[in-house]
Design a protein around this nucleic acid. Structure first.
Ligand SMILES: [Mn+2]
Ligand SMILES: [Mn+2]
Length: 505
DNA sequence: GCGAGCG
DNA sequence: CGCTCGCAACGCACG
DNA sequence: CGTGCG
């Protein structure tokens, strides 16, 4: 106990604060035998909370309650056990200056008498054992209360819960809105009826708030994730399910980066490459590929795609290597990013020109819309080179384009460098970098989709996002041949001759 | 969307 | 309990 | 060099 007070005094510099210095003398008008004083101070500090203090054995046992007490017996309020305070502190109100521990303002929110069940002995035992039952007689709070130590107390501070007991002083607020009609109809305050109604309404709410697709529980299926198209979460989920046969060949075996948007397009978007446990339902984990991190992920099945969608994955980006040969990329990607002011025709020409350079080098490339503003050129490779060589080679190609056609291409990122031109983004060929996969949606208004195209149809393309989650099905149904035929069979490598043509390393 | 950390 | 916070990561452009 | 962007 003495120790606790010392800790407190160390945290405070008494000469700088208006709080009372502890004195050993005096003690004001005492409550009756078996009772003690209590106080709740509203403490507007770095974080607003309520300090709940019970007098016991000459000191104030103290808890910080972030949300303050609730009169609803079904509500448990976290009460973090904090240092004992001196009795004198119970009457403190005022400002704790900046720079002092607990800086902010303190106001007495309630005070009065607490009467522990079992008297003084009950209080001591309850406090030691982590379960205090007591009655409060304050100005705001009355009736029975329970303060229990939560089984989960990790490390320094104990977590307790403050709960109102069910008595006449309790004010149930649970489901107030849902139940209020019922209550008005029959003015009987029938607790069991209320709880039945609330249970039923919760069940109903869950039923309409959940769906099941490919064995995966889908929460909030009706939530609109893109205002522009009006598409809902369930539409995205069903898109992934329907596109599965087309999409899986492009993601299976490859570590992914998921771009997730729990609040939909326009909300916060974050990437996720790693996950512990089965945080993404049905995803496959690959521990050890990325040292110092949780396992990398691959998506191998329809269930995994749907699982990702349940977790609000919109974009699916893949590495340029398989998990099984993580140090040997099996392709390089050129991401053609146009200055937004350029006419689309320049974009098509750029793709064709890039293709011609690659062709001259002896490399076949395949093209897809990005689902956004541009196009992606994908060059499959046998798994012969390391990341360093693949990246250097991609940079050499981009630099060559920029050097030969500087009015059209830039190999430097940054809006400045791209002005009036197309940035050949070769940076997606670094280890750990990734590019939106074929048939993956993009987290942009309209939910564009990256779609593989045949070179023969290049001239018919109208934009990088001409296909989207809503209309790509039409495209696929109309297809007579695989636009990427030959891709799987390609066996090509980066050779010394290519380097020579590009002007050496 | 969800687990971890924290008050 | 209930809130808030991560959830990639790194070369490159710019100052 | 540090900082911020993509
Ligand atoms: Mn406090
Ligand atoms: Mn792009």
């Amino acid at each position: 106990m003495k120790h606790k007070l010392e800790v407190y005094e160390q945290k405070r510099r008494f000469d700088e604060t208006p709080e009372p210095r502890g004195r050993t003398a005096r003690r004001s008008a005492r409550p009756r035998e078996g009772e003690g004083s209590f106080v709740i101070q509203r403490h507007d500090a770095r974080r607003l909370h309520y300090d709940f203090r019970l007098e016991l054995d000459g000191t104030l046992k103290s808890w910080a309650i972030p949300k303050g007490p609730s009169l609803d017996p079904t509500v448990k309020r976290l009460a973090v056990h904090v240092e004992d305070h001196r009795l004198e502190y119970g009457s403190f109100e005022g400002r704790i200056p900046e720079g002092s521990y607990g800086a902010g303002t303190v106001a007495i929110w309630d005070h009065g008498v607490w009467r522990p069940e079992g008297g003084l002995r009950g209080a001591r035992e309850g406090y030691a054992q982590g379960k205090l039952k007591f009655t409060l007689e304050g100005e705001r709070l009355h009736g029975g209360w329970t303060l229990v130590r939560s089984p989960m107390h990790d490390g320094k501070q104990e977590s307790w819960l403050l709960i109102k007991q069910r008595d006449d002083e309790a004010v149930p607020e649970d489901e107030f809105h849902v139940v209020s009609d019922e209550r008005a109809a029959s003015n009987a305050s029938n607790a069991s009826k209320v709880s039945k109604v609330s249970k039923a309404s919760k069940k109903r709410a869950r039923a309409s708030n959940e769906a099941e697709v490919a064995g995966v529980r889908i929460t909030h299926p009706e939530r609109v994730i893109d205002a522009q198209s009006g598409l809902r979460k369930i539409d995205l989920v069903e898109y992934f399910e329907a596109i599965s046969a087309w999409l899986l060949p492009h993601v299976q075996g490859r570590p992914v980066a998921l771009a997730r948007a729990p609040k939909g397009v326009g909300g916060e978007l974050f990437f996720q490459k790693h996950a512990k446990a089965l945080q993404i339902p049905h995803a496959t984990q690959h521990a050890g590929l990325d040292p110092g991190h949780a396992p990398l992920l691959t998506l191998e099945s329809t269930e995994a795609l749907v699982g990702a969608a349940q977790m609000d994955t919109i974009e699916l980006h893949t590495w340029n290597a398989l998990a099984a040969s993580i140090e040997k990329p099996d392709r390089i990607v050129f991401d053609l990013d146009p200055d937004p002011s350029l006419p689309w025709e320049r974009m098509l020409e750029a793709a064709q020109l890039t293709r011609e350079l690659l062709d001259a080098l002896g490399l076949r490339a395949w093209c897809k819309t990005s689902g956004g503003r541009g196009l992606h050129l994908v060059v499959p490779l046998t798994r012969h080179a390391g990341w360093e060589e693949a990246k250097d080679f991609a940079r050499a190609v981009a630099s060559h384009m920029a050097a030969t056609l500087p009015e059209r291409f830039s190999a430097k990122m940054g809006a400045q460098n791209r002005k009036g031109r197309i940035f050949v983004d070769y940076l997606r060929n670094n280890r750990g970098a990734s590019t939106a996969a074929a048939y993956a949606p993009r987290a942009r208004p309209g939910l564009g989709v990256s779609v593989p195209v045949d070179w023969d149809e290049l001239h018919t393309l109208t934009s990088g996002d001409q296909w989207n989650v809503a209309n790509v099905r039409e495209r696929l149904e109309a297809l007579r041949t695989d636009p990427w035929s030959g891709y799987e069979k390609a066996r090509q490598r980066i050779t010394a001759a290519m380097w020579k043509q590009l002007g050496g390393k």
